[in-house]
Design a protein around this nucleic acid. Structure first.
Lengths: 247, 247
DNA sequence: CCCGGTGTTTGTTCTGGCGCAAAGTCGGGC
DNA sequence: GCCCGACTTTGCGCCAGAACAAACACCGGG
């Protein structure tokens, strides 16, 4: 059942942090100016450098945000999930979108034209404060990632990346926590600052220890606690062994 | 002439991006609730994890923002200069300050208690929008840094770091562009995700080519264009030599 | 003027992880 | 059911850059 733009159901906004604390009139205001759109897997939603005409939020699906360098090097900045906004940075900055957005799965987005959302923020300052909170959260995450890339070795970085993915996009199953969208080793590499080869090697090692299980575009975390231990570089939790501390 | 807190001169706010577009009453409002404080070199202004009671802006001096990891690894996130705000992230997030702030030089800061600034933003939405612009700019910088750390080799990263420092804190002299505050090789290393040794080696190489000149806690960029070329990994600009392209 | 501490340079060794190469596997389309 | 392309795994050699180590320069203070 393909279809074009349509008016959103008001209830979708209630899950979005951007509108926390907004009164009913405000919601109506926001809804009235929004439009929604279906997205198909692989679709390029916007590209780095393109002028920013609208601000996006994802209702359903996953969108990969990546940035390419002059030298051709790519880095995956994040995967956007339902309820999250994206393409917001360009709204406050000259120079168009700072990254590419590509749909990792089919989905639905909701969007506001830039001036509309700007006006909305001036009319309802609480929305601006919510936006600050969101951007602040992302900034903090990026700072942590900068530190991580600066100081941690590859294995720990991959572990951290998987831990974050599991938290953000993990589906609990009886086998463990499963990343709920298709992701390649290449993409994991571009999220951690390494190559797909190293990601594959490291994950193979973990698989041999029963910590994770990999498949084609698929990752299952069997022992989340062990992964966290790796991410924090704690000594692996020995079942029972009062190992000497000195040394 | 040591002294304690004092009422700020209203003119200092006019240079600050946060108050762009604010009317006179708004300025008065902002000024009335602010206080200023002298800072001495080496002073710790706040530490990672400490509860955030106030939001800071620097009137004069330089402040280093750094984040430490559980493993002891440190990363320098940025150096704050006059007119810039810092400690703002904590205002929008639980968990206190996400990083340490240490004065790199003597200086003066102006600060607002967190609830005061929050209220100010609700009263004057344009301030919130300005804050979004600031945070957006920082987020974008961090994203670029993540990509850089993910994809670029050490030499290029150091070049980029110096280029950014020269732009942000460069003083034009007849010899070139001079970083206008004391900075150690260690700190440059922590800004680029490498060791002070590697920074020293790389800079020695550049010094031999006349691109930069180093001193104790001091850097002078003699050939900014050459540094930019390194940062972008362009082939070094040959004065005149149609060198063969083939390997 | 000497002295100690802090910061810098430089050498040597060692290794994590990248580049290259090739084979293997999976899934979807025809 | 087969084939093709996309994705993944694994081996191997190498090198950028870290770790270790030591000497050296500079600055401020006594």
């Amino acid at each position: 059942m393909p279809q074009g733009p349509f008016r959103p159901d008001p209830s979708v906004l209630h899950g979005m942090a951007l509108f926390n604390g907004l009164d009913a009139a405000g919601y109506a205001d926001a809804i009235a100016q929004a439009r929604t759109r279906r997205i198909v897997r692989g679709e390029v939603i916007f590209t780095q450098g393109a002028p920013c005409d609208a601000c996006h939020a994802l209702i359903d699906g996953r969108v990969k945000i990546q940035q390419g360098g002059a030298d051709g090097g790519q880095a995956v900045l994040r995967f956007v999930g339902p309820g999250e906004m994206f393409g917001t940075l360009a709204m406050f900055m000259a120079g168009g979108y700072p990254a590419d957005a590509v749909a990792a799965t089919d989905g639905v987005e909701i969007l506001w034209d830039t001036p509309v959302l700007r006006a909305l923020m001036l009319r309802h300052p609480v929305v601006a404060l919510n936006a600050l909170e969101m951007l602040g959260g992302r900034l903090q995450e990026m700072q942590v990632r900068v530190r991580e890339l600066s100081t941690a070795r590859v294995e720990r970085r991959i572990a951290n990346t998987l831990v974050r993915l599991a938290r953000q996009a993990g589906r609990r199953t009886e086998e463990g926590v499963e990343i709920d969208f298709p992701i390649t080793r290449q993409e994991l590499g571009e999220m951690t600052g390494t190559t797909l080869h190293t990601v594959s090697r490291v994950m193979s090692g973990w698989e041999a220890q029963g910590i994770v299980e990999g498949g084609r575009q698929h990752v299952l975390v069997r022992k989340p606690h062990a992964l966290v231990a790796l991410a924090e570089d704690l000594p692996p939790p020995r079942p029972a062994a009062p190992a000497a501390t000195g040394g």
